[in-house]
């Protein structure tokens, strides 16, 4: 789904979301009652230091307003921008800063909801979609940690072999279904039904601790993570 298709489908009552390069900022009303802040990264763009800082600045401005309301983050990105400039500037700090800002917003009462409607990968995925309290996706979204050809190069395994292995485990290969099974995606929306209603239902659910490990265990993609984390937590609390 394209950026310009998704906005009217989310906000039938209108919105003020505007493009700023490959980023989106503004607000909209879900249903007829629930105003939400909106930001996004679109067009499969890679996320560099400048854009990460702009997104974080927007989140901090929203926190500064002191009127917490849901923050909907629309995501169709590539990976982090891979360049000499970004690493010279310390891209890790910019991506961490963005992730921290989104997590702080959630803690300050802004319900952070990511909606993955296109791609996202690697460091950009961590700093945007995965930093949201709840991550939703539309069918056709295509998250990836690393693409299979690159993985084949690093693991020195033929791509055909990796494809075969990906049939028996969701743990390494890209794709929405694989990431959902590991617990990264809380819910994949029904593209036919009203999108705003589905997001409103999510906003209405209570939030609490990070439950992605449990989701991964239930869905079979991460058999051990939740149990291991819980055991360490118990040992450290003894």
């Amino acid at each position: 789904m394209e950026r310009d298709d998704i906005l009217p489908r989310l906000f039938s009552a209108g919105h003020s979301v505007e493009h700023q390069g490959c980023l989106l900022f503004g607000e909209g009303t879900l249903g007829h009652t629930t105003p939400v802040d909106v930001m996004g990264i679109t067009g499969g763009s890679v996320l560099g230091a400048e854009d990460a800082l702009t997104l974080a600045g927007n989140v901090l401005n929203l926190i500064g307003k002191g009127m917490p309301r849901p923050l909907l983050v629309l995501i169709d990105s590539g990976s982090q921008r891979m360049s000499r400039h970004d690493e010279l500037m310390g891209l890790s700090e910019y991506l961490a800063h963005l992730a921290k800002s989104v997590l702080l917003a959630q803690q300050q009462g802004h319900r952070t909801i990511g909606l993955l409607y296109g791609g996202s990968a690697a460091g950009a995925f961590i700093a945007t979609a995965l930093a949201c309290d709840t991550l939703l996706a539309l069918p056709g979204a295509h998250p990836a940690v690393m693409d299979l050809p690159s993985m084949a190069r690093v693991t020195k395994l033929p791509i055909e072999r990796l494809q075969k292995m990906a049939e028996v485990t969701p743990v390494f290969a890209p794709g929405l279904e694989n990431l959902a099974q590991t617990g990264a995606i809380h819910q994949t929306l029904d593209p036919i039904a009203d999108l705003a209603d589905q997001i409103l239902a999510v906003i209405g659910q209570p939030t609490g601790r990070d439950n992605r490990g449990t989701l991964g265990a239930t869905r079979g993609g991460r058999p051990k993570a939740a149990a291991v984390a819980a055991r360490i937590e118990a040992l450290a609390s003894a």
Partner: peptide
């Protein structure tokens, strides 16, 4: 991220970041 378990590793990193924050 450990590529052989890339999705689990990526998600672990996100969980670690959230726990640190």
């Amino acid at each position: 991220v450990r590529l052989q378990e890339a999705n689990a590793g990526e998600l672990a990193i996100s969980e670690i970041i959230r726990a640190i924050v």
